[in-house]
């Protein structure tokens, strides 16, 4: 099928630059910390990327519609607590998983209702629901930890099939499925169109409701999926889990070249953004950099990435403004 060129991923120019950056980073690492490339370390890197990548794909869907989801961290905490609590009370695994994923989709739908029906700006709506979800969760748990998880959940987080756990394979499947939806279905294409210009999408007969509901329910679902592996890997959960997680996810997606104003962004870029952030953290740990300075480095990398994509965007899209004052 023909795809309109304005919303197609295009030349992947940003992704090429990001890949180049990763290559330079890899060369530096090869000299500074050759242990980084030892198979156990690479497997650990992949395992640290799984959950992050799954949720980042959801965030990409939302950012493509020019939205944002500040409540993702809260949803992650709610779902993981529900999952572990009900599992610990002896609910059968399939029902618990269904309950967890259903909760994620429902919480995403709450966001979508606020944004699509009440027309609250996404940042305000998800800011509000983040507090709402987190507050109710903390009231429910009373700040207590769920310190143990049942054996089947524990097994889910354990490495298998070549040092990798299921989260890595799940992330791979999520990437494939999202790629298909974003590029081969009408709904996926309309995400790009709507993010590019809601008005022109409306004129083209695209339902804004469908786009918004899909975007926020998909991040709800993917966050819930991530929460399952999050709980499985960690082995314990609590109401204050994953505070601020969504901001790192947004950083990764944006680092991957997604336009925060919607309409532009790729799965490949998101993958590279996640890879860069995760491998940076892994490398800094290997180099014995104190955890506090790792945040400084992460912040600097995010800023550089944003600068870098802004520079290429200015050069590409606004040549006419070069003569304007300021």
């Amino acid at each position: 099928m023909n795809h309109t060129s304005f919303s197609a991923p295009g030349s992947y120019r940003h992704e090429q630059k990001l890949a180049l950056l990763l290559c330079i980073f890899a060369i530096v690492l090869a000299v500074a910390a050759p242990r980084f490339f030892a198979p156990p370390n690479l497997a650990a890197l992949a395992r640290s990327m799984g959950v992050f990548l799954i949720i980042s794909v959801g965030m990409l869907n939302v950012i493509l519609t020019a939205g944002i989801d500040i409540s993702a961290g809260a949803i992650l905490a709610v779902v993981s607590v529900i999952l572990v609590r009900f599992a610990n009370h002896g609910m059968a695994a399939p029902y618990v998983l269904l309950l967890a994923l259903g909760t994620g989709i429902a919480l995403g739908a709450v966001n979508a209702v606020l944004i699509a029906e009440l027309r609250i700006p996404p940042i305000v709506a998800t800011l509000g629901t983040a507090g709402l979800f987190r507050g109710l969760l903390l009231e429910w748990t009373q700040g207590e930890w769920e310190a143990s998880i049942p054996a089947w959940l524990n097994a889910l987080g354990r490495p298998r099939w070549g040092r990798l756990d299921i989260s890595v394979w799940a992330a791979f499947l999520v990437l494939l499925a999202s790629g298909w939806i974003l590029h081969r279905t009408q709904l996926g294409r309309s995400l790009f169109r709507y993010g590019d210009s809601p008005l022109s999408a409306h004129r083209a007969g695209i339902s804004a409701r469908a786009v918004i509901y899909y975007a926020y329910m998909s991040i709800g679902f993917l966050t819930a999926l991530g929460a399952v592996f999050y709980a499985a890997q960690l082995g314990s959960v609590q109401g204050n889990a994953a505070v601020g997680y969504e901001l790192t996810v947004i950083a990764a997606v944006v680092l991957g070249g997604a336009d925060i104003f919607g309409g532009r962004g790729t799965l490949l870029g998101t993958f590279l953004g996640v890879l860069l952030l995760c491998s940076l953290q892994q490398a800094l740990t290997l180099l014995h950099v104190a955890a506090f300075w790792q945040n400084v480095a992460t912040g600097a990398i995010v800023l550089l990435g944003v600068l870098f994509s802004a520079a290429s965007r200015h050069a590409k899209h606004i040549p006419s403004q070069s003569g304007a004052p300021a």
Partner: peptide
């Protein structure tokens, strides 16, 4: 977003 991570790290 970048400076938030940067400053809190600092």
């Amino acid at each position: 977003l970048g400076t938030m991570i940067l400053f809190s790290g600092l």
